[in-house]
Simulated assay, not measured.
Amino acid sequence: MHPVENEPLPQAGHAEIRIVAATPEAARAVAEVIRHAFAGTEQRGYPVPDGGTRLHLTVDTESAAEPVLSWLTTSRPSARTGTHVDEV
């Protein structure tokens, strides 16, 4: 069974973000950009079997910075929504 299937959903108004990168520095750079837009928890880092890094963040989508909050409230789902080939 895929590990995501066993994970509980985040509470309403929050989102779980997974960042996978070849280096810890690249993953931290992306996490830093996300933290400028959303309030969130401390990141949790894990090694990836092929030598990369995976960071997990929980963000509060209701405490987004104004430009992001405006985008979130007006955005529409894409017709191409769905999972990527490597997702469940």
Rank of each mutant, 00 (worst) to 15 (best):
S78I: 03
E25L: 14
R44F: 01
R28L: 14
H84C: 08
I17R: 10
D50I: 14
V20S: 09
A12V: 03
V88N: 05
P24K: 06
R35P: 02
I34W: 08
V85M: 11
A12W: 01
L55R: 02
T61Q: 05
T83N: 04
L9E: 02
H56Q: 14
F38A: 00
E66F: 01
R35M: 03
H84F: 04
T41M: 00
A22Q: 15
N6P: 06
H14V: 03
V20L: 12
E16K: 04
R80M: 11
S63N: 11
T73E: 07
P67M: 14
H14F: 00
N6M: 06
A12N: 05
G51Q: 13
V30T: 10
A39R: 09
T73S: 11
H36D: 13
A26D: 15
A15R: 02
E32R: 02
P67V: 11
E42S: 13
Y46T: 07
V88Q: 03
L72Q: 08
V20A: 12
L69V: 09
R28K: 15
L69Q: 09
A79R: 13
A15S: 13
P49R: 14
V85N: 11
T23E: 07
Q11C: 06
H14E: 01
V20Q: 08
H14C: 03
A22C: 13
T81P: 11
A79V: 14
P10V: 03
W71Q: 15
A12M: 04
L57V: 09
A79D: 10
A37P: 15
T53C: 11
R80H: 15
P8D: 00
E16N: 05
Q43R: 13
I19G: 03
S63T: 07
E25S: 11
S78D: 09
A21C: 12
A65K: 09
F38H: 02
T81F: 10
V30F: 07
G52W: 06
A26W: 01
L55M: 04
G13F: 00
A37M: 11
G51W: 12
A26F: 07
E16P: 07
A26Q: 15
L72K: 07
T58W: 01
V33I: 13
A65E: 13
H14N: 00
T83E: 02
L55I: 05
S63D: 08
A79N: 11
V20E: 10
V85G: 08
A79C: 09
G13H: 03
V85Q: 12
F38C: 01
E42P: 15
P47A: 00
R54K: 14
T61P: 05
H36P: 04
T81S: 15
R18I: 03
G51C: 13
P77Y: 04
H56F: 05
V4F: 01
E16M: 07
A31C: 07
E87N: 00
P47N: 00
L72P: 11
D50Q: 14
I17Y: 01
P49E: 15
P24V: 05
L55C: 05
P10Q: 00
G13P: 04
V20D: 09
H36W: 07
